[in-house]
Amino acid sequence: MKNLDAKVLDKIVKGTIAAVEKSKTQIFDIYEAAREEMEKVRKDVERIKQETADIIFKVDELEKRERRSRLRLMEVSRNFGKYAEADVKAAYEDTSNVQLELAMARLQEQSLRRQRDDLELRLKTLKGTVEKAESLVSQVGAVLGYLGSQMGIVVSQIESLQASQMFGAKIIKAQEEERRRVAREIHDGPAQAMANIVFRAEVCERLIETDIARAKTELKDLREQVRAALGETRKIIFDLRPMTLDDLGLVPTVRRVLETMKERSKVYPEIKVLGEEKRLDSHIEIGLFRIIQEALNNVEKHAKATSVWVRIDFRPSVVSAVIEDDGEGFASIDTVGNESFGLMGMRERINLLGGDLNVKSEQGKGTSVFVTVPLKQ
């Protein structure tokens, strides 16, 4: 390849990354708007359910009144000579009024039930939109990392190796800053909102006095769904930027990921540390952690494994990691390599760190991921 002018190349690199970053921001804005609308509709569903419960209680009471008034009317009709004309007239009017009020209440109940069903359908649709937007943000982030790394390769042909590594470190730093920002926003927004919904659902459960079995079942289901969403939100926060990585380093953070993995899945994890454990440069810790994290995600989601082993080896000039599982494996890396954004991201991160990554797998005998990252002397 012929050498390119450094200024032209720099302009292309900056322009491309800026365009992709802008697209990512716009998609994230769409995701935020959809999420806010989803929370609004969720509150409307809660309100309509409460109003429906209230009108059902009112209908029940009116039905009781209507039965009493009809009995009264029957008694008056059978003993017409025993009651005064005013009593007969009052009985007829009372029955008529109660029946009219009951009919109106039943119409209102039907209307509220339709509104509830429509809102629940809309909430389901919005939830799907939010999930798709969130997935698209992740995919665009992966593409951004891929583009950045490929451009880094071009830059390395006209700049020194040190400059290329600095460029890669800046990309990783920018990505992690974005992760930290999103984590803070999610923590302050949807996580708090969902916790509040759980509390309100419990209050509603105590207040509803009609159709108890049905009301409690619906509210308990709602509460469990919200708690599950809350747990997933907190998991997303940790995945975006685990605070232990900044405070304690690589190994404690990996230990926490393994503990969480053990709690939520049937995979039994083990970790072994060789050499003298030490803190590494920030971009190395971040990059190596993300590679290990992605490998563990693949084990949990796809490997159908019962155990996974992580070994981290600290040496003076290199740090290495091995992630092995006893899952079903796959026949060839080519069958997944071109389609997996996860594996693509792992390779791009290791390239930016100037290290090596190898994946070995055999059908029915599990998968092993070998990672090696050089350290500055």
Rank of each mutant, 00 (worst) to 15 (best):
G141P: 03
P242C: 05
N298A: 03
V154A: 12
I171Q: 14
S265N: 10
M166A: 14
K304I: 09
Q175H: 08
S317C: 06
V226E: 06
T16P: 02
A321C: 07
S164D: 04
K2D: 08
V310M: 04
D221N: 13
I350Q: 05
V59K: 09
E32R: 13
G337D: 11
T52D: 01
K376E: 15
A6I: 14
A105F: 04
A174P: 02
I17F: 10
A305T: 02
H302D: 02
V273S: 01
A303D: 07
S282V: 08
V203E: 08
A201Y: 14
S320F: 01
P190S: 13
S340L: 06
Q110H: 08
L258C: 01
S111Y: 05
L248F: 14
I212E: 10
V369Q: 00
N298R: 05
I292A: 00
A33H: 09
I12S: 02
I17P: 00
T372R: 10
H283Y: 14
K22N: 11
N196G: 15
G141W: 02
A105E: 02
E66R: 08
D188T: 11
D29P: 00
T244G: 05
G249W: 04
D239T: 03
H283W: 13
T244E: 15
S160P: 03
L245E: 03
K24S: 12
V273M: 00
G81F: 00
L121D: 13
Q108T: 11
L147W: 00
I186D: 08
E32C: 08
K304R: 15
Q162F: 10
I55L: 07
K58G: 00
Q157K: 11
G275F: 08
T217Y: 15
S368H: 02
S138T: 07
E277N: 02
E46N: 11
I30M: 11
K7R: 10
A228I: 07
L4W: 12
S320D: 01
S96Q: 10
V336G: 03
E51Y: 10
I350R: 01
W309E: 13
V140G: 01
D326E: 01
G329W: 05
E21G: 06
R179C: 11
I172H: 01
Q165W: 02
V155A: 07
S23T: 13
Y92G: 07
M243L: 13
Y31F: 12
K365G: 01
R122P: 05
L343E: 05
E159C: 10
A191G: 01
